[in-house]
Design a protein around this nucleic acid. Structure first.
Lengths: 166, 166
DNA sequence: AAGCGTCCCGAACATCGTTCGGCACAGCGA
DNA sequence: TCGCTGTGCCGAACGATGTTCGGGACGCTT
């Protein structure tokens, strides 16, 4: 993870459909170099995939919510089963397994508030391990365009090689 | 948003770097057709962009958290200012503006628990409008590979044209 | 039944992805 | 000081891909 890797990652976070040539040009290396670097990043698991960002209302999901769920008893098996269950639901956008007052935060996107209510009372509270549910409507969901590697102390980061060549 | 559009969106959500040819083959149309459809989806704002999914620990951010923040007074100006502030912070992954007990949920990724603590007490509670903060560690963050358009009642969806041609 | 609009296709040319041989530099040991 | 070695990068070349454009098929309207 030297500076070049970081630049490639940043560019691909901002636009994953950049052509390899454009990508190379933006970070200032030859296309062949960019190609090999990106491959390495993929192989090392730094780049995990590329996903389209979709407008949820256009998909008929105008209402988003974050649903905090408490599981009783919070044993590994219950947690993992519920996590898999929640992740597989078609209304689910993402699932956070968290510490604190609750065990899960489920990010859902549904057609309207009726569908949200139905989701909570039919899908969630129907399950016996669900001890508590708190629903928050999501008004806005903003993401950062690109995550830079932070100051990076120690971590598993490989040594940045000295700058080379021309 | 007919069936073909939905298929294209689903494929690009799963892998945004599919070549147009592969994409066309998967959904069963000619490359030129796929190209025009995807263009239209972009132009209509259904597809908002393409982003690389990055392994945060590899970027030196091994600790993730969701930080619930309450703003006082919760007036529009305060809310919007704080939202922009939080979105711009380098530690921030995403910001949810929500209803309920809190006004914000900030998803952050930092190097370690020290950095998390520093973030909360130096960056957040330093601001006078921050009335309350609740931090939850994120153990896991799972996303759905692809969001299908839900049963879709009414919505702004255009009429699906009858199947055409061969 | 004829006209029209929509959607899709396939061929063709420009552009891109990918491979491969080779060079430049840094570090090492003699 | 000198040569050796490994690493990272480059550029040319070939195969694959992106993109445009003219035209055909179908359903709907008049």
């Amino acid at each position: 993870m030297d500076e070049l890797d970081a630049a490639l990652v940043a560019e691909l976070q901002a636009d994953a459909r950049l052509t390899n040539r454009d990508l190379a040009e933006r970070v200032g290396v030859a296309p062949s170099t960019a190609l090999e670097r990106v491959r390495s990043l993929r192989a090392r698991g730094v780049l995990r995939g590329y996903h389209a960002d979709v407008d949820l209302p256009a998909l008929g999901r105008s209402v988003q919510a974050l649903i905090a769920v408490r599981i009783r008893p919070p044993a590994r098996r219950r947690i993992e089963e519920f996590r898999d269950f929640a992740t597989a639901l078609p209304e689910t956008v993402a699932v956070f397994v968290v510490s604190g007052g609750e065990d899960f935060l489920i990010h859902v996107a549904v057609a309207d508030t009726d569908a949200l209510y139905a989701f909570v009372i039919d899908r969630l509270t129907e399950r016996p391990e669900v001890a508590d549910v708190r629903t928050s409507i999501v008004y806005q969901h903003l993401r950062r365009p690109a995550l830079e590697p932070l100051p990076a102390r120690s971590v598993g980061a490989t040594q940045p090689p000295a700058s080379r060549h021309r």
